Simulated assay, not measured.
Amino acid sequence: MPDISVILAAPGWRAAVKRPEEVARRAAMAALQEAGATGAITVLLTDDTEVKRLNGQHRAKVKPTNVLSFPAEVPGQLGDVALALGVVRREARDAGRRAAEHLAHLVAHGALHLAGHDHLDAGEARRMERAEARIMRRLGLPNPWKEGRAAVRTRGAT
């Protein structure tokens, strides 16, 4: 069973999502099951300022983004995923989605990166989108890539 820790660093997450730690934990677990991966993950639910700092420090992009993934270099650890509350809320609103749905999708996306998935070319992107759709179905949530829904591209994950 994967070890998934969730750190709630921005209390505003509780106003945006009911039980955000549970949503994040379930999404990470489902993503690891989908990918057949094992190992520890830490999910950081933080604010735009912290994600902007992390994005600048690790990716030389001084702006907040929705999700960042940081693979671990330690055996038994898959890595860390950080999410920016303000960006996630704005994207969910703009896409007509509930913040909890978007949070689950982005945690799954970040966890898939830690398990080795990527979206650098069209084929990889399509495989990753299909995996995300299966994860969301497993969680009983809508497919973020379904036609007719305003899909929000997961542009920040690395």
Rank of each mutant, 00 (worst) to 15 (best):
I4M: 06
S5H: 10
V6T: 04
I7T: 08
A10F: 03
G12E: 00
W13T: 00
W13C: 00
W13A: 00
A16S: 04
P20C: 03
E21Y: 06
E22S: 11
E22L: 14
A24V: 07
M29G: 06
L32W: 15
Q33P: 10
E34R: 12
E34L: 11
A35E: 15
A37P: 03
A37K: 05
T38R: 09
T42A: 02
L44D: 04
L44Q: 09
L45A: 00
D47Y: 00
D47V: 01
D47L: 00
D47T: 01
D48L: 12
K52D: 11
R53E: 14
L54W: 15
N55E: 05
N55T: 05
G56S: 14
H58K: 13
H58L: 14
R59Q: 08
K61L: 09
V62E: 13
K63S: 05
T65D: 04
V67N: 01
A72Y: 12
E73D: 10
V74W: 05
P75G: 04
P75I: 07
L78M: 04
G79C: 03
D80L: 05
A82C: 15
A82Y: 11
L83A: 13
L83N: 07
L83S: 10
L83E: 04
A84S: 15
L85G: 01
L85M: 05
V87W: 02
R89I: 01
A92W: 07
R93S: 03
A95L: 11
R97I: 13
R98M: 11
R98I: 05
A99G: 02
E101F: 10
L103K: 08
A104L: 10
H105V: 13
L106H: 09
V107E: 03
H109K: 07
H109S: 13
H109C: 10
G110A: 12
G110L: 12
A111I: 05
A111E: 07
L112P: 00
L112Q: 01
H113T: 02
L114E: 07
A115G: 07
H119Y: 08
L120Q: 13
A122I: 03
R126P: 00
R127V: 02
R127G: 01
E129I: 12
E129N: 06
R130V: 05
R130A: 09
A131V: 04
E132H: 02
E132R: 03
A133C: 12
A133F: 15
R134F: 12
I135H: 06
L139E: 15
L139M: 11
G140P: 13
L141G: 01
P142D: 08
W145L: 10
K146V: 04
K146W: 08
K146P: 00
E147F: 08
E147L: 11
R149W: 07
R149Q: 07
V152P: 00
T154S: 13
T154C: 14
T154Q: 10
R155Q: 11
G156E: 02
A157H: 01
A157L: 02
A157D: 03
